[in-house]
């Protein structure tokens, strides 16, 4: 088990990570979700031991490893850039961590074969990384991490530089690759959809702070606060002040109401639905979905609709949200979800 005990990191007066505690279990995959500069990479580097925390402790299986240099820990890392030894063949790259560990030759051969097969690199073993496509280069980097049999595998936006199709493909493979290795997998990403697709656990980060950590779906369905809800939403979460909404059912103390773009629908809806008059700003069409950007007073919302819908900009539209899909937050941004209140 990897445990971060109140670790923080400041660099020349700037807070990269405020005091954070986190426990990660072996054999689990945890996603760090947050925007660029939210502290994901700082956290990964602290976990790896590439950097020392300004305060707090890092424990591995109960043992304090805070000051231990990275090469003495069993850590593997895969980056957004495709990092392989440029002068070595794919085979030599995969074998490099095993050779450093001085494993017997036979084991090295077998392990190379196994990992290459798993990542479908067998036909490419004698090529050099620069002769491969981006997707293949990242497979080699993953193969190196896998061959290393590390206790802690850190993946820092590993799919961000790949094109859409390859990203989907490799993302589907990733959890299977490391399943059964017993390693702690940490996956940093800026994309909420990736967190959902990978499932497992998720920690949302904002401004150097973990806002919430738990099973991914829990975080998505019942965020503890507005920041978590906003971080875990793509397209952006729609919000409205409770006074503007004019909703009788609002819980006491509510200040902000929020709802996801796909819960905003054209038309009047049922009797209890909240209806608004909005004007269309623009429409983006991806093919299977349409994003309709609308304005209501000073609020800017996104409406996500399946299929192709084209609304001329400036058109007045009646839209609605069902009360069941509304999330209420108090003035401090804390969720007023009754199920959470009971839990607390």
């Amino acid at each position: 088990m990897l445990e971060l005990r109140q670790v923080s990191r400041r660099v020349s007066g700037q807070v990269h990570l405020s005091e954070t505690s986190l426990q990660l279990q072996p054999g689990t995959l945890s996603v760090l979700l947050g925007r660029t500069l939210s502290g994901k990479t700082s956290l990964l580097r602290l976990m790896a031991g590439l950097e020392k925390p300004s305060s707090g402790q890092v424990l591995f299986n109960g043992k304090d490893v805070t000051g231990q240099p990275v090469q003495q820990r069993r850590v593997a890392m895969v980056y957004q850039q495709f990092i392989n030894y440029p002068g070595w063949t794919v085979r030599q790259n995969i074998q490099s961590p095993l050779k450093v560990q001085r494993r017997p030759q036979l084991e090295i051969e077998q392990e190379t074969q196994r990992v290459a097969q798993l990542l479908r690199l067998e036909p490419l073993l004698d090529r050099k990384p620069l002769e491969l496509s981006g997707g293949q280069q990242q497979r080699v980097a993953l193969a190196r991490a896998l061959a290393k049999k590390a206790d802690l595998v850190l993946l820092d936006e590993p799919l961000a530089n790949l094109d859409y199709k390859l990203r989907e493909e490799l993302r589907a493979e990733l959890p299977k690759l490391f399943a059964g290795t017993g390693a702690i997998i940490v996956y940093a990403t800026t994309e909420p959809m990736e967190a959902l697709a990978l499932s497992g656990m998720t920690a949302t980060l904002s401004e150097g702070r973990i806002t919430q950590f738990g099973p991914t779906l829990d975080l998505y369905r019942r965020p503890h606060d507005l920041i978590t809800a906003k971080t875990f939403s793509d397209p952006p979460l729609n919000t409205i002040g409770v006074h503007d909404a004019n909703w009788q059912g609002a819980p006491r103390g509510a200040s902000t109401l929020a709802f996801r773009p796909h819960h905003l629908t054209p038309g009047m809806g049922s009797g209890s639905a909240l209806a608004f008059n909005v004007s269309v700003i623009s429409t983006e069409i991806t093919g299977s979905e349409s994003f309709i950007h609308v304005a209501r007073g000073a609020d800017r919302w996104v409406m996500l609709a399946h299929g192709i819908h084209v609304y001329p900009s400036g058109e007045q539209l009646q839209v609605h949200v069902e009360p069941a899909h509304l999330m209420a937050f108090d003035a401090l941004g804390v969720s007023l979800d009754p199920s959470l209140r009971r839990a607390a």
């Binding site: 590439l50 990275v70 090469q71 980056y79 440029p86 450093v100």
Partner: peptide, 27 residues
């Protein structure tokens, strides 16, 4: 050369000479 190369080399426990020979020189 992206910083990540040097980090990756540190994680692998590569010496200064190895970093030069296997990362900097080929790059």
């Amino acid at each position: 050369i992206p910083d990540a190369y040097y980090q990756a080399a540190r994680i692998d426990g590569a010496s200064g000479w190895s970093v030069f020979r296997f990362i900097q020189l080929p790059k």
